[in-house]
Design a binder for these strands. Sequence first.
DNA 1: ACTCATTGATCGAAAAAAACGATTATATGG
DNA 2: CCATATAATCGTTTTTTTCGATCAATGAGT
Lengths: 297, 297
Amino acid sequence: MVTLRQLHYLVTLADRLNFTRAAEACFVTQSTLSAGLKELEDTLGARLVERDRQNVLMTPLGSDIARRARLILAAADDLMEVAAEAQAPMSGILRLGVIPTIAPFLLPVMLSSLRKTYPALRLAIREDLTINLLARLEAGQLDMALIALPFDTGTLLVRHLFEDTLWIVGRKGEADLRAKQVDITPALTDRMLLLEEGHCLREHALYACGMGASKSAQGVEATSLLTLVQMVESGFGVGLVPQMAVKSGLTKSPALVARPLAKPSPARTIALIARRSTSRLTDFATLATLIQAAPPG
Amino acid sequence: MVTLRQLHYLVTLADRLNFTRAAEACFVTQSTLSAGLKELEDTLGARLVERDRQNVLMTPLGSDIARRARLILAAADDLMEVAAEAQAPMSGILRLGVIPTIAPFLLPVMLSSLRKTYPALRLAIREDLTINLLARLEAGQLDMALIALPFDTGTLLVRHLFEDTLWIVGRKGEADLRAKQVDITPALTDRMLLLEEGHCLREHALYACGMGASKSAQGVEATSLLTLVQMVESGFGVGLVPQMAVKSGLTKSPALVARPLAKPSPARTIALIARRSTSRLTDFATLATLIQAAPPG
DNA sequence: ACTCATTGATCGAAAAAAACGATTATATGG
DNA sequence: CCATATAATCGTTTTTTTCGATCAATGAGT
C-alpha cells in the first residue's frame, strides 16, 4: 500500500530534482528518501524518476503521479486542519490571495472590519495575478482568494459576492464624457488605455469595448490601475476602472471625470474562491458574508 | 502525521459502526483498529467517534473527516492504478455504470465492439439510477458511467457523446400522431405515461412537455421503458421514448407508431462521466470515442 | 592522469510503529 | 445471576522506518 510519506518524498523530489536536497527538505537522510522512493516505485511497479549519476528527472508517469500526490497531500492537510478549525472558527492564520485590481480598494475596509469582529484571525495577504493565485490555491499555499470573474476557475469552489461595474475615466471637459451614462464609441475605444497582459481587468475592459480594441492606445500599457489613471490624467487617453476604485477615490483628481457606462453596464463579478476540500468551509462562508455586508467605497 | 491506514480504519468504521466488524473488514484485529483510531483522534486532537460500550456513532466532525478520507483514499487508489494503466491501456476490469434507459439499447452494440477491439478489457456493468451511479463513482466503486444530461454532475469529469432526441410513441391510427413531426399538444400531455420517480428520463420527458404535465396519465407509472411501451400498446396513453430505443426496435410492434417531435426537438445528451482523478483518463477518452464512432441503432 | 567533491544506491544496526493475542471492564438480554 | 457482546488496555512479537557509514560513478579542477 502506498503511504502519504512516500508521496511526500516524491513530491519534494519532483520539486528539487535532487535526492540530497529533497531529503533535507523532508528532514530525513538521503538514504531514507532514496529507500522510500524505491519502495514507492516497487509497489507501483513502475519507474517514476530517471536517475543517472548526475541528473534526476521525472518520467512522464512520475510527473502525473506527483501531480496526483500533490492533490492528495493538500486534501490530507485540509483534513487535518478541519479538526483544528472545528474547535475555533475564524482564528489562526488565513492565507488570502487578492488580485491587484481589488486589493487597494477592498482590503482597507475589510481588514479593519475583520480585525474588529474576529481579533483571533490573522490574515496573510498575497497580492498577485489571478492565474498565480489559482495555482497557489490548488497547491495548498493559499486558503482563499478574491478574484474577478469571468475567469476559468476549474474545479475550485466559487462564491459570487457582488457585481462591480466598469466606469470610464477621462480628463475633465472631454466631449465624449458629457453624458450621465457614457456609450463606448469607436472613437473612445481607439483612445482606450489598458493594463498590461496578465491582469484580468484588461480582458474585462476589452470585452466591454466589444472587442473593438485589441491593443492599448498608443501602444502604451499601464502596470497598475494607479499608473493607468495617472496616464489618463497626463492626456494619454481614457480608461475603464472598476466602480470600487472610483468609489474609493482613485479618480478624485480635479482634472479627471469618471462616469458610469450606458446599460447594460459592463461589469466584473467579485468572487471568493477556495479549494473544494478546504478545511475552512465555515470561515469561507463567514468571510463571504462579511465582504457582502460591508462593500467597498 | 495522519496516515492512509488510519483513514481507512475510520472510513470502514463509519460504514459499519462496529469496531469488531470494521476490524474484520480491514483484516486486522479489533485491538489494532481500536489503537489506530485512537491514534488518529490524538493527532487530530478531536473526538471523531462517540462510543459507549454498546453503541458507536460518528460525531459531526467525524462524519466530515470520514467524508474527506473517502475522497483521499479514492484518489490514492486512482493513483496506484494509474501506474498499472500506464503499462497496459484498455485492459483489466473496468467498472462501468449505465442507467436503465440507456443500457438495453447501447450496450449490445458497444460490448461486442469492445470485445473485438480490446479483448484484454473486462467490463463489469452496473445498471442503476443516475443518482446511485454518481454516488458510487465518487466513492471509487465505479470507474465510469453512461448517463443522460441534463443532470447535476457536481465536480465529476463529463464528456458529451451525442444527442438523443425524444420520440413519441402511440397506438397506430392515433389522430394526433399522423404528422411526420408531432407537436406536443395539451391533449397529448394529458395522456402522457411517465416512468416512475428516479429515472432521469422522467424529468427529461416532463421538460419536453413544457412542464404541462406533472403526473403520469391515469396515475399509472412505468417501471421501465419496456413496460411503458407495453402500457402504451395496451391503450393506457402515449409515451416519450429516446431515439436510441426506437432505433433498436423497442417500438417495432405492428400496433404501435413512433414519430419524431417537431423542432426544436427535445433531446437528452448522452454523456460519459468519471472522477476527475480517475486512473483511466486515456481509457475514458478511448471509450468515449468508440461510443461516438459506433452509435446505437 | 590524478585528485576531490558530489551524488544516489546499498547495507547492517537501531529505533519506531504496527499488529497480535489475551485480558479486562461494562453494558444488555434472558 | 449468567451468557453474550463490545471496546479498551497491556505486554509481546513482528514489521517498518530511519540512520549512519560506505560504495560506486561522475564531472570539475589541477
